[in-house]
């Protein structure tokens, strides 16, 4: 991925030198032409095009913003309820992510959405211990995290 980005920037510079147009406009034109060339030559790379990965990062950001709003409304309902019938609980979340930055990102996303806090990462980094403010069904919460955040992070880190 990093190699493809550097190659794209170098192609943009080559375009600037060939057209002797040393402005930001020339750089952007060269960069777009470089993307087109990379798409044409995509079969020769061992990894997938970096454009897909950037698209996955954008999707993960939008998903996080959506979850943030929804979870805030849920916590607001818990707080404003006249009856105190919430069910706080700890549960273990078995994660399939392996790399350090993936685990950090998943923990941060779970913590930043209100209602759930990651309190501990197990020593073999295979289990996250999560505290939830109001939870009736453990399996439901686990599948919710798995289908939303973990899938999006795996989409980003797929080579």
């Amino acid at each position: 991925m990093a190699f493809q980005i550097i190659l794209n920037v170098m192609l943009a510079f080559v375009w600037m030198f060939l057209s002797s147009n040393y402005t930001a406009t020339g750089f952007i034109i060269g960069f777009i032409l470089g993307i087109v060339l990379l798409v044409i030559m995509r079969r020769f790379f061992t990894t997938r095009l970096y454009v897909y990965r950037i698209w996955a990062i954008i999707k993960l950001t939008l998903l996080f913003l959506k979850e943030l709003v929804l979870a805030n409304i849920q916590v607001l309902r818990v707080v404003l309820k006249p009856k105190l019938d919430m069910q706080p609980a700890f549960f273990a979340y078995p994660t399939v992510l392996t790399q350090e930055w993936e685990i950090t990102l998943l923990s941060s996303l779970i913590t930043l959405t209100p209602g759930t806090v990651v309190v501990h990462v197990s020593d073999d980094a295979k289990t996250l211990y999560v505290h939830a403010i109001d939870m009736s069904d453990v399996d439901e919460a686990i599948t919710a995290i798995r289908d939303s955040f973990e899938k999006a992070i795996l989409e980003v880190s797929k080579s």
């Binding site: 350090e100 930055w101 685990i103 950090t104 923990s107 990651v118 501990h120 990462v121 020593d123 980094a125």
Partner: peptide, 11 residues
Amino acid sequence: KINDVILRTVT
């Protein structure tokens, strides 16, 4: 010794 993977990655 607790697992401080989050602290190290953020650092």
